[in-house]
């Protein structure tokens, strides 16, 4: 068990080559800004078109969660850190200081939503999980949530 967990961790623990931090107010219009800026920064690792699309989609989901859930009735700051690491790994951390998630395990279930009236499908975490190699969620009620997306890029010829 332990060795498996360590192996898993090692896969994503390459040294950081380059790093970017951005801060955006939780305005819906910034969903496209966030995913485009992250994709542009990742371009230096020469990802495939499909990998770029995967990253954009996962970032869009995490940022939308900050806007729709974390800062539901207010505008707060969304902190995004992108780390490009040895071993062609991309780590994107999306952090807010919003409401927090009461039950992370439940929130990650496909089709689970607390915002059905606004047509949120409850598929955000499912999309992140299927487009990334690992998704870590850390949340504390009334303190905020940090979602870390790990994406391993394939080697390019």
């Amino acid at each position: 068990m332990r060795t498996n967990l360590e192996k898993e961790k090692n896969r994503f623990s390459g040294a950081v080559i380059n790093e970017m931090r951005i801060k955006l107010p939780s305005l819906s219009v910034n969903e496209s800004v966030a995913r485009s800026v992250v994709a542009a920064f990742c371009a230096q690792l020469d990802p495939s078109a499909c990998e770029v699309a995967d990253i954009k989609c996962a970032v869009s989901e995490a940022v939308t969660n900050c806007i729709v859930h974390a800062y539901k009735d207010s505008v707060g700051i969304i902190y995004i850190t992108v780390k490009l690491c040895e071993g062609r790994t991309v780590r994107v951390e999306i952090r807010d200081r919003g409401r927090g998630i009461e039950n992370v395990r439940l929130a990650r279930q496909p089709l689970y939503t607390t915002d059905a009236e606004n047509e949120r499908s409850g598929m955000g975490f499912t999309v992140m999980e299927s487009f990334c190699d690992r998704v870590r969620v850390n949340s504390q009620c009334k303190k905020g949530t940090t979602v870390t997306l790990y994406k391993l890029l394939k080697n390019r010829e």
């Binding site: 496209s32 995913r35 699309a53 954009k56 989609c57 869009s60 989901e61 939308t64 606004n118 047509e119 949120r120 499908s121 598929m123 955000g124 499912t126 999309v127």
Partner: peptide
């Protein structure tokens, strides 16, 4: 060119 899970909600609705 791009769609996230918001598209699912849009079609379902």
């Amino acid at each position: 060119d791009f769609m996230d899970s918001s598209g699912i909600g849009l079609i379902m609705g």
